[in-house]
């Protein structure tokens, strides 16, 4: 029983779709943020799989850069969430409607 590389790609696609549905369905900003992390991870999995398919390491280097950018994004994003919580006393995304006329 062998594992074709496509199985990993299928798994990554499933994880990405779950992340998208999570962002669309959930209203807690922190959970939405975690779903974004899920999507970034599934894309990393795809990159590593294609790195293996093509037999060079550049996919892994790109995956490493994605991790670095994700770390920076989490830092700033969580600071924004904390600020939003100070302003609204809530982490519900629907509460943030100050720009609604």
């Amino acid at each position: 029983m062998v594992v074709p590389a496509g199985y990993y790609l299928l798994l990554a696609a499933a994880l990405f779709s779950i992340g998208v549905v999570g962002v669309l369905v959930r209203r807690n900003i922190i959970v939405m943020f975690m779903c974004i992390e899920l999507m970034l991870n599934s894309v990393n999995l795809t990159l590593v799989t294609f790195s293996r398919i093509n037999g060079n390491l550049e996919g892994q280097v790109l995956s490493f850069f994605v991790m670095v950018v994700a770390a920076a994004e989490v830092t700033v994003g969580l600071a924004l969430i904390v600020n939003l919580f100070r302003l609204k006393a809530s982490t519900d995304a629907d509460e943030v409607d100050s720009l609604r006329s």
């Binding site: 074709p4 590389a5 496509g6 199985y7 790609l9 299928l10 696609a13």
Partner: peptide, 10 residues
Amino acid sequence: AGPYLQRSSA
């Protein structure tokens, strides 16, 4: 994923 699902893609 479609093109890589055959056994030859293992």
